[in-house]
């Protein structure tokens, strides 16, 4: 069964996804955090594998990545941790990170180990569409991994159509062209852009990310999309010191707001 497809077909109301960097704040907290997030009501997850030069990320995720690397996180260790993923977590899980660690691990090895762990999709922001189509799409398909593409306000309609045709999970709609961790300000322009995407009636569900940090921005995003992704705001919580696991239910409840399941 395709967990992502199932989620978007059966989910009533907006889906909430949470991003966190594997290996942060502690090397071995990955599955504890994932499990706590599911229990708290997150609908799907993005687990970031850290990279030394994350050019699409703002300071919060940069710092979490550096700390994770200092803690010794590698793709090899992450896949070892993920061996028990499906014993503890049932919601869809994406892996998110930059292309160079994937290349060094080997694309085939990466897809195989991700699939084996029960990962549903992969988000690699700096993997170009051309290279994906030519070199990687076959491997992704063989292992039934969804490749998630990003769309920004500057992405042309023609390119969005192409992305839609290559996607089989969801499309990651950036609230603005920015690095991660900026606050969403819904101006008329942003609203027009969200409306424009919605009116395109894409085949894939659309999930909005970048700048979603609280209930208000979550609600706003969900007027136009099937869900929203919170990253930096959650990573900040993880960095807030001991007891971060216990703070997760409250964090999720606040974002979703009462009455939303």
């Amino acid at each position: 069964m395709n967990r992502l497809k199932h989620l978007f077909e059966h989910k009533k109301g907006p889906a909430l996804s949470i991003y966190f960097t594997a290996g942060y704040p502690e090397l071995n907290a990955t599955l504890d955090i994932a499990e706590a997030l599911e229990k708290a009501g997150a609908d799907f997850l993005e687990i970031g594998f850290p990279y030394s030069d994350p050019v699409a990320d703002g300071p919060v995720i940069q710092e979490s990545s550096q700390k994770a690397l200092d803690n010794g996180m590698t793709l090899e260790i992450l896949f070892k941790q993920l061996k028990d993923l499906r014993k503890r977590v049932t919601i869809p899980v994406m892996l998110m990170g930059y292309v160079n660690p994937v290349l060094q691990y080997g694309v085939e090895n990466f897809c195989r180990d991700a699939a084996k762990a029960g990962v549903d999709g992969v988000i690699v922001p700096d993997l170009p569409m051309y290279e994906y189509e030519e070199l990687y799409s076959e491997c992704f398909a063989k292992h039934q991994l969804s490749n998630i593409f990003l769309v920004t306000p500057q992405t042309s309609e023609e390119r969005i159509r192409k992305i839609d045709s290559l996607s089989n999970g969801f499309i990651y709609l950036l609230s603005s062209s920015s690095t991660t961790g900026k606050n969403l300000s819904v101006s008329q322009n942003v609203e027009d852009y969200f409306k424009r995407i919605k009116s395109m009636n894409l085949d894939n569900p659309v999930v909005i990310g970048f700048g979603i940090s609280d209930h208000e921005s979550f609600q706003k995003a969900n007027q136009y999309a099937n869900g929203a992704i919170v990253g930096s705001a959650f990573v900040k919580l993880l960095g807030s010191g001991d007891g971060y696991l216990e703070k997760i239910p409250e964090f999720i409840r606040k974002i979703k707001g009462s009455g939303v399941s």
């Binding site: 030394s52 030069d53 050019v55 590698t74 793709l75 160079n100 994937v102 060094q104 691990y105």
Partner: peptide
């Protein structure tokens, strides 16, 4: 260095076995 991707192109770069620059 080894082959990999840095700053937008595939080239040769100094990196760890895990692909960190």
């Amino acid at each position: 260095g080894k082959e990999g991707v840095l700053h937008g192109s595939r080239s040769i770069l100094m990196q760890t076995p895990d692909g960190q620059v």
